[in-house]
Design a binder for these strands. Structure first.
Lengths: 189, 189
DNA sequence: TAAGTTTGTAACCATGTGGTCACATATTTT
DNA sequence: AAAATATGTGACCACATGGTTACAAACTTA
């Protein structure tokens, strides 16, 4: 039998990530990860220090926001830039399943194991939103709409509709984007 | 030993409700309910047909939106009425823990057992929002902000902050309310 | 080559889960 | 009073969970 610790660690981490991505936080457990990686669970404890260590590893690597953070570089100093930023952000959110599941996780629990992961995740979030830290009503309206976008994105995994809005149709999401744009415009008039 | 089926059924149902309210969907299980009710779990199967039956019972009774539905009666035909409606709705949402946990549940799963409960819950939601079924951008902006309100309400159970906003301070929620009001005004100008 | 160390596995443990069972004890019906 | 039925219990089942242990096989060092 071949032995390759680096490869084993990688298998474990990747199995953990894909499990989280595909089946959500509830499906993430020591047994499931070990089974998916095709490896003895003892190694998860030995190499990572259990699930808690795996979460910490993810927090440190910070994979989940990597594509979102690229948005952060642009300067948001005009109405148009804010609109672009919002549009890019919502699109990225809808495509990044891993980020979605971490956001979902934050709605379920916050214990010692998840604490660091969420802390890091929120820090990255804050960076992205550092632009609008003025205490204006646009700021709150904007946050509400971003929150709504997150909510509908998470909801769409299990529900096709919210009230009369079809969450499985691209048109609905375009309408949401348009509503955000228009709101930004109205507040800046 | 005394025997009183009606009282036992009530104990089971109430234990189920308070468990959901206090500890959320993950804590709702046959064993936990039976233990809390101080009764043999066999009776849950016999009287309700298991957890699935309990959910169905809740759906039929529809307790969770009862206080919200009282809002529904008012006619929403003016800007001011819509603002009142929004304000009352958000306040009610923040006070009604049971509704919160059902909304949280919808973000976690949607299987045969929960299907009817969610279906009913959404039907009630739709009734409340029947006012704004015109496909305007205000409608979408409004839905986004309601969704955001739901998101932040659920999030506040485990997280004190979203970005820079303190979710544990009443002031933040007042600001959210104001932002909604102002948005409604701007769209109606 | 021999000894020591790292990597890996499978069995095991205690605990918790949903679900069923046989049985005992009240309560009703005959 | 006797029989039938409704109500309730605790033990039991198979299975899954997180976590630990003892041991084997590979690789490294001496």
């Amino acid at each position: 039998m071949k032995k390759d610790r680096a490869a084993t660690e990688e298998k474990i981490y990747e199995s953990f990530l894909s499990l989280l991505e595909e089946k959500g936080p509830q499906a993430v457990g020591i047994n499931a990860i070990a089974k998916k990686a095709g490896v003895s669970k003892e190694l998860i404890y030995r190499y990572y220090g259990g699930l808690e260590g795996l979460l910490l590893h993810l927090a440190k690597k910070g994979d989940f926001f990597k594509s979102m953070l690229s948005l952060q570089d642009r300067a948001i100093n005009s109405t148009e830039a804010l609109k672009d930023f919002a549009k890019a952000g919502t699109q990225e959110l809808r495509e990044n399943k891993l980020t979605q599941e971490i956001l979902r996780w934050q709605l379920l629990e916050n214990n010692e194991a998840t604490h660091d992961l969420f802390k890091y995740s929120n820090k990255e979030m804050s960076k992205m939103f550092a632009i609008s830290d003025k205490d204006t009503s646009l700021n709150h309206a904007f946050q509400l709409m971003i929150g709504g976008y997150i909510y509908f994105t998470l909801l769409s995994k299990f529900n096709k509709k919210f009230i009369t809005t079809d969450l499985s149709s691209q048109e609905s999401w375009d309408n949401f984007d348009k509503a955000i744009e228009k709101t930004i415009d109205l507040f800046n008039k």
